[in-house]
Write a protein that binds this DNA or RNA. Structure first.
Length: 317
DNA sequence: CTAGGGGTAAAT
DNA sequence: ATTTACCCCTAG
């Protein structure tokens, strides 16, 4: 009732169950982040491409292209209320999307357009991050995911401080008033649950994924022999370790390219925010429900966008 | 290969 | 009882 405690604990348990029988593979925040980044880099629908990209294959190696597609669908639904599959409880308003760019940064000027159609190339907008809390009712953002996203985006070696995470989130979304406090609690909780690893005031994402899977071959065990009748726990740990190594290895070797990707992603997110803002504003015209909130959101979105114009990125030669 | 429909276990 | 979030199936 009070504040929702998003299924963290729940799917921690979930995770354990998965270890035994693997009925379902809950998507980790890591994977979600990778997926988002992938979509931004290659565009929605290029699932095979994303999957092949060595940048993301480390995290998504146990997902199939179809999985990516499905997950993206779900995530999109969370953002705009109705993705491709959802019963439209509200008036099915047509929304058009902001044209997205893949490689270069865009300086966004006027955002609000007339009701004229923009020819959009992609069926889906780049709806990325979760929405800020606009609706007092039950529109609650998954702060957990926001945190994960912040950490992955910041990509600070060794993890990010609470303040950095807070700044990141505050820049992009509208935190509630007592946001800092909630964040602290959440971080503590996440760390306690093994979702985050806290080292010297810094938080990094725990390599939650990585365990035995169904159809994909376990690449990591190839060489080593750990023959033991019951080694579930050990296996888990080892896989985890391997995953860490893999991730760190990747992170170290990517520099300029990564920077470019991050920059592109940031812009794309801003674009997505604007697209949503547009939609919100448009809705506000007819539905008086969240008129004020929508208005404020639109302003906020544009504000943050302006603030982050064109970071310099050293594109690879 | 991708988009969309459908099924279902699990959570609220 | 309803909603979520995965997963599978199949047409294009």
């Amino acid at each position: 009732m009070s504040l929702e405690e998003p299924d963290l604990f729940v799917w921690g348990v979930y995770l354990l169950i998965s270890l035994m029988g693997a009925p379902k593979q809950k998507w980790t925040a890591e994977e979600e982040a990778a997926l988002k980044a992938g979509v931004i880099k290659h565009g929605a629908g290029k699932w095979r491409t994303i999957l092949k990209d060595p940048e993301f294959s480390g995290v998504l190696y146990l997902r199939s292209n179809v999985d990516l597609k499905d997950k993206w669908r779900n995530m999109s639904v969370m953002v705009n209320g109705y993705g491709s599959r959802e019963k439209p409880k509200l008036a099915p308003k047509r929304v058009h999307h902001v044209h997205r760019q893949d490689e270069n940064l865009v300086s966004v000027g006027t955002v609000v357009q007339s009701d004229e159609d923009i020819p959009d190339a992609k069926p889906l907008p780049v709806s990325s991050a979760a929405l800020p809390v606009v609706n007092p009712k039950r529109t609650t953002v998954r702060l957990d995911n926001l945190i994960m996203e912040a950490i992955t985006s910041l990509k600070e070696p060794g993890g990010s401080h609470k303040t950095a995470i807070a700044s990141y989130i505050e820049e992009q979304y509208w935190p509630p008033n007592d946001f800092k406090r909630i964040l602290s609690a959440k971080l503590k909780y996440l760390a306690a649950n093994g979702k985050l690893i806290k080292v010297k005031r810094k938080y990094r994402i725990a390599p939650t994924s990585a365990f035995a899977e169904r159809r994909v071959s376990p690449l990591f065990f190839e060489g080593r022999q750990r023959i033991s009748p019951k080694i579930e726990r050990d296996d888990f740990n080892i896989l985890t370790m391997s995953q860490i190594d893999l991730d760190l290895g990747k992170m170290r070797t990517m520099t300029a390219e990564q920077a470019a990707e991050v920059a592109a992603r940031a812009v794309a997110e801003a674009e997505a925010a604007i697209a949503v803002a547009e939609e919100a504003a448009r809705e506000a015209e007819t539905a008086e429900a969240d008129a004020e909130a929508a208005q404020a959101f639109a302003e906020a979105a544009m504000k943050t966008l302006k603030g982050r114009t064109a970071p310099k990125m050293t594109v690879r030669a």
